[in-house]
Amino acid sequence: MNTALSMTVPSVGRRTWITTLIFTAIVVVLPFFISGYQRTLLQKGLLWIPSVFGVYILYSLLRQVHFGQSIFIGLGSYITAFMAGKYSVTNELMILLPLALVVSIVVAYVLGIFIMKRTGFYFAVMGIAVTMVFWSLVYKARTITGGSDGISHIKNPSLFTVPLSDMGLYYFCLIVSVGIIVLMLRVLNSSFSLQLRAIAGDLEKAESIGIPVKRMQRLAFTIAGANAGITGVLLAFSYNYVSPSVFEWGYGANFVQSAIIGGVTSFAGPVVGAFGFINLEFFISTWFANLWEIIIGLTIAIIVVTVGEKGVTGIVQTLFSKIRCK
C-alpha cells in the first residue's frame, strides 16, 4: 500500500525461543503468588494472545487491519454457551475445542471469499460489517440466543471427563495459549509467511511468480479466525457468561489496538499487547471508570501518530540498539 513503510519482520532465532520459555516459566509460577482475581486477569491476558496473534499475522505479513476477530471469539463462545449452558449437551473441552475450531475455520474460509475480495480499507470495513451482522442476528434471535441478556450458567469445563477446577482451567488455558504461540512462531518463520510478505510487497509480481494470492490471503485469514475460535471457548468458560457484546465491532477493534500497543515489529508484540491492553483496561476502569474509552482511544491514536505500528516492543528495541551503539 505504501512504500514509505519500512517495516521488516525479524526472523525467529534462538533468543525468541528462550524468551518464550522464560515467559512460560513466569506464567506457570505466577498464580502461586497472586490473588484469585489477579489470576483471572492473567488468564484473560493469556486467552487474548492467540487472537492478537491473528491480527498480528494479518498486519505484519499482509498489512491488513483485521477488525473481525470478535466474530470468531463470539462463535466459539456461543458454541460453548449452547453446548455447556443452554442445552447442556457436553462440557468436555476435548469435544468443544475441536468443534469450535472446525466451525471457525469453515466460517472464516467462507467469509474470506467475500471479505478478502478486496484489501485495505475494504477488508477492514467488511470485517466491521460482519461483526455487526453477527451482533444483530444474535441480538434479535432472542428465543435462541437470549438476546441482550445473553446466556449465563455455563457449566464448568471438564477435560477427558475430569472436571476442571479454576486453577485447572488456568493451566489448561496456559497450555493452549503457549501451544498456539509456539505454532504461530513456526508459522511466522515458514515459507508461507515469506510468501505472504511478498504478496504485501507487490501483489502483481507475487502473482506473476506463481503465488496463489487469493488463496493464501484467505488461508491467513482462516488461521487468524481459528486462533480466535479456540480462545472463544475458553473465554466463555472463564466468565461463565456470554452476551452479544462479544460480537461488537468495538470488541474486535480492541484486538487491533492490543496489537498496536504491543507493536508488530517484534514477535513479543502480541504477548506484550494483550497483557498491556488488559492491564490498562483494568487500571483505568478501576480509577476512572468513565474515562476508559477516551483514554484508550487517545492512547492508541497517539501511539499510531508518533511511533506508527512499532508499539512498546518497538520502542524498547530502539532504546536497546541505541544503548548498544554507545
Partner: peptide
C-alpha cells in the same frame, strides 16, 4: 520466495525456512 513458489511449497506452514 520465487524458488518456494516454483517448488509448490505455498502451504508448508510449520517448516522453518
Amino acid at each position: 520466495t520465487a524458488c518456494f513458489s516454483s517448488a509448490g511449497k505455498h502451504y508448508s506452514l510449520f517448516k522453518d525456512i
